[in-house]
Computed example of a mutant assay.
Amino acid sequence: MNGSGFTLPEIYCPFPVSTFNDRPHPATAEAARELDALIDELDGGASLVRDAAAGVFLADFAGRLHPDVSSQGLALVLMSHLVFYGHEAWIEQVDAPGHHLSPLELNTVYDRALEVFDGAATAPSDTLVAHLLEPFGNLVQASKKPESCVRIRIALEGYLRAQVWERDVRSRREMPSLATYQAMRRNTSSTVLYLELFPRFLDLDIPATLLDHPVVRQLQDMQANYTCWVNDIFSFEKEMQEDGALNLVFLLREARNLSWQQAVAAAAEMVEQEATDYLALKARLPRLGIPLTGALAELLDQQERWQAHCITYQQQAPRFSVTP
């Protein structure tokens, strides 16, 4: 039982945790030094990005999350996390009273940031978002795999444009429908983008036709749902203190007229059902003519381990603590 009068249920996780807390990537220390230098450059004497990175143990977490990727893969993991947490810190800053950007202004910021991601040089007048996407874009383009770059670019734009939707919902103080929230949450959290990066983290050659197979795509959506809903459960107590919070537990409570305890339990039931359905669909892949071997098997295995590691992480990171 916590101070709000409810008990968080145990989160169902059928995925294996094997290396999260005992074997960080051997290049973590060097990657952390490079990350620190980049953060200093991005902050320019302030502490916005540094505080965001500190709140999630960024270098240590990424090194333990992906202990077996190449050094280049680890750099991309770190940069993708920095894009998310740095962008989130920036948008919270511009949403503060007196700094609010209109949807048109925010889309203009994203237009320019995407130009930088595509290779345009940054200018002193550019926002932090553009400066974050410059090194991220360089790492993505370094693979010389145009098809993969296009997919990542599409997922990145989906993440950025979803922020405009989320800001609009929060400003209107209106809860979206449960179905709309579930569909948009995968993008607002950058989970779609992160899953799209996995073949690059792992240097896997998976044909686009396989990644775009409707069953494989459904598996990826279910992975994203699982991640987002677990995140919502762990963070909702902290979000109760925010103005205009948007969270699965909140939506279930309103849509079904539940108590807080009932709503968090309902969210946990959704998590368990999604994981169960995912495993059942994955088991049927060979019967559907999709061999569960090679790069696809490695991709799904690594994503499942990531799910379990994320649960461990969210129970430890200051980001999710309700303590001031």
Rank of each mutant, 00 (worst) to 15 (best):
P146M: 14
G158F: 10
A155G: 12
D168H: 06
A183N: 06
P135T: 08
F201R: 08
R172N: 10
E174P: 00
L195C: 13
W229Q: 11
Q223H: 14
R173P: 02
A179S: 13
R217A: 06
F117S: 07
H213A: 13
P97N: 05
P214F: 08
R153F: 12
V216D: 02
L193T: 04
H100G: 02
A162F: 10
L195R: 05
P199M: 13
Y194T: 15
R185T: 05
L139K: 11
A130E: 03
L114F: 10
L195S: 05
L202P: 00
R112P: 14
A123L: 15
S148K: 11
L106A: 05
S171Q: 14
P199K: 12
S125M: 00
K145G: 02
P207D: 10
N225A: 07
P176D: 02
C228N: 06
Q218R: 15
I154S: 15
M175L: 14
R172K: 15
D203L: 01
Y226K: 03
Y159T: 01
V109P: 04
R186Q: 13
V129T: 14
V169H: 04
L202N: 01
A123R: 15
R161K: 03
F201V: 07
R170F: 01
A142E: 06
K145W: 08
F198T: 05
A120H: 09
A130G: 11
I152G: 10
F198W: 06
V216R: 02
G119H: 07
A120N: 10
M175I: 12
P97L: 12
E134N: 10
F136W: 14
A183C: 02
Q163I: 04
A183G: 00
Q141K: 13
R186P: 07
E166V: 08
R153W: 11
L156V: 12
Y181F: 13
R170C: 03
W165L: 09
P124S: 06
S148E: 09
M184I: 01
N138T: 12
D118L: 07
D212V: 06
V230P: 02
S177G: 14
S102V: 08
E115C: 11
Y226F: 14
V216Q: 04
Y181S: 06
V140T: 00
A130H: 05
R167E: 10
R185D: 04
N187F: 09
E134A: 15
S143Y: 15
Q141I: 03
D168M: 03
N231F: 09
